[in-house]
Design a protein around this nucleic acid. Structure first.
Lengths: 117, 117
DNA sequence: CGCGTCCATCGTAGATAGCCGATTCCATGG
DNA sequence: CCATGGAATCGGCTATCTACGATGGACGCG
């Protein structure tokens, strides 16, 4: 049959199954800046909700996020942009839609930085 | 005369040596809100620096924080207020000075919430 | 008492964040 | 080709953040 005619979600849940140790330091002014940047991105309930959505579903949802949140489409799009700029999520064009998924590396990085406190 | 003339730092490093498990859930809309609030408080480099300072020194520093940061005293005071309102630090009056220290419970809570992502 | 120290708060100004409706962009489907 | 629908961006408004100097209150010392 066709190679894939199903809903292959464009951005897979695990493009890197083996976890690199992430050599960057968790302290120092650079790390402080990085932690502040990531924390700021997480520092809004809607964005936490989006992150949770994307973590929960291994697959990446697209505009379903808009339906899930009590916010206008444009507002959700802005929150997605913030998360994307922080490197916490990734968006890929999947045909007519856009597919978002978490960036596990950055999420792990955030956990490391918070854990270092 | 003076009950204690030693430099007892007013807020000890461990007022609760045994760690309660913290029964609150790490998911749900309440948890999302809580995580967003804490993350927002951490979402500034100066505040990350302050937290690091207070974690590093088990003892609580007071206005030394001002000397440590390249900011005006009033600005530092505001950052301290933000952290205090988030419950991440605690301030106690220690004679003529004010003594700040981290609130280990809240910090642990933050780690739990971030870890749940 | 009067002074100096330490810290919080006030007032202000500029920047940023959050929200929305309206518009634009763009890949598909007809 | 144009039409459609999902998504990003624009414009504008309000609210919050960040920073600072200045003011004010609490405390200990001389």
């Amino acid at each position: 049959m066709a190679p894939q005619l199903k809903k292959v979600p464009a951005c897979g849940p695990a493009p890197e199954p083996r976890q690199e140790p992430d050599l960057r330091p968790v302290e120092g002014s650079d790390a402080d800046e990085e932690l502040a940047l990531l924390a700021k991105a997480v520092g809004h309930p809607a964005r936490v909700q989006i992150l949770r959505l994307l973590v929960r579903r291994e697959a990446c949802v697209c505009g379903d996020i808009v339906d899930e949140l009590p916010l206008a489409q444009s507002t959700v799009s802005q929150h997605l942009k913030v998360l994307k700029e922080a490197g916490l999520i990734r968006g890929e064009i999947d045909g007519p839609r856009v597919c978002y998924c978490i960036e596990p590396r950055t999420l792990r990085r955030l956990k490391s930085l918070v854990g270092s406190l």
